[in-house]
Design a protein around this nucleic acid. Structure first.
Lengths: 204, 204
DNA sequence: CTTCGACTTATTGACTTGAACAGTCGAAAA
DNA sequence: TTTTCGACTGTTCAAGTCAATAAGTCGAAG
């Protein structure tokens, strides 16, 4: 079929409009009425598609996460060394979080200080990330590029380090989003840390 | 001289009493009157020694920090490998932060969400820590144990990783202090990360 | 130099209120 | 049957008030 079920089609349009609003003003500053106006509907109609505002927001985030997942998978398929893949992963993840910051999820309070509903969303996605990372480390081991025997534990530690570095910066910059300079510094720091890490697990 | 200036002596007593109170109830829950009562003085007398409540608290933190510094220096003097020193440093730092959590600095809000006055205190101490770390890395290099050419940058990255891991956990456990299990996990994670790091800079 | 009682000023937490907004419902259009 | 919306309700939350409590000052006295 060329076009999907019209209701699905409509959902997408709403998500898209919502994404634009959220990206500009952040979750709390956007009203359902505004989004409804954007897609030329009544507010009540929005509730036909999404039971709550949070659900709509969740859908937006979910879409972003799926895009990130797809992009990570593309990296995995590339024919480059596992080390290079790791580095590209870090870079990609960096960009993703910049989007989240713009979406207003992360700016107001720190990283994990979002309602538990969103917590779950991130928690679930952490598993996806871990699985993808694990594959990178496992592949590195298979190619005799890496040493560690437990790609699972390695992935956890590595991810936590990345999360930690971001967390640190996020706590530092209260309120408004991360400015360009800080962002660059963080980017650099993550790369440095990744390099140390790669070095630490490399087969020499 | 056997005993110090009496006023200095008195200051110490006050700091000590304050430390106990703060450690039990946290900064905001303790009144100057209570502390004064503990040392059997009038509240007004406290202000003779410390111009503000914050100044008194600052003095308490400062004392803790100096103790930590002294302990790190003791590690540096030990005749063990630089890697082992790093590991001991991590452990010591862990304990120190547990004390801070008890002092109520870190529990209520995240790591850096303390008034800028305290921020400065931590910021200054970061320099001390960095300098001590730098010495460890420099020594490691001298002994042909470590590779990196820039102990300064290495120290920064390493410290930020540690800060990040803690930050991550602190954000997760809103409100109350870190429970024993989480503390153990964090401890383990820091050690694991440190080991990867050491591995990454080791001369093989 | 140090202490304190009696004072003033600042902070805070509990309560109130009003407007804005999330979310509901039943009727009706497509 | 699926989708839309106008008109409704109940919450939430920022802003404002107020009283209590605690921070901080000062002058006199030991």
């Amino acid at each position: 079929m060329i076009s999907e079920k019209p209701s699905k089609e409509r959902e997408k349009v709403i998500i898209d409009a919502a994404r634009k609003r959220f990206a500009h003003y952040g979750f709390s500053k956007v009203t359902m009425e505004e989004i409804a106006a954007d897609v030329e509907m009544g507010k009540a109609s929005l509730y036909y598609y999404f039971p709550t505002k949070e659900d709509l927001f969740r859908a937006v985030i979910l879409k972003e996460q799926n895009e990130l997942k797809r992009n990570i998978e593309l990296i995995l398929e590339k024919s480059i060394s596992a080390s290079e893949k790791l580095l590209e992963f870090v870079e990609l993840r960096m960009k993703f979080f910049q989007v989240l910051v713009n979406l207003g999820t992360l700016s107001v309070q720190s990283y994990f200080d979002i309602k538990s509903i969103f917590k779950k969303l991130f928690f679930d996605f952490e598993k996806v990330e871990l699985e993808l990372l694990e594959r990178m480390f496992a592949e590195g081991k298979l190619q005799k590029e890496f040493i560690p025997d437990l790609p699972e534990d390695t992935a956890v530690t590595f991810l936590h380090i990345l999360q930690g570095l971001r967390c640190r910066v996020l706590n530092w910059t209260k309120g408004q989003g991360i400015d360009e300079e800080t962002h660059q510094k963080l980017n650099q720091e993550m790369k440095t840390a990744t390099n140390f890490f790669i070095h630490g697990i490399k087969n020499k």
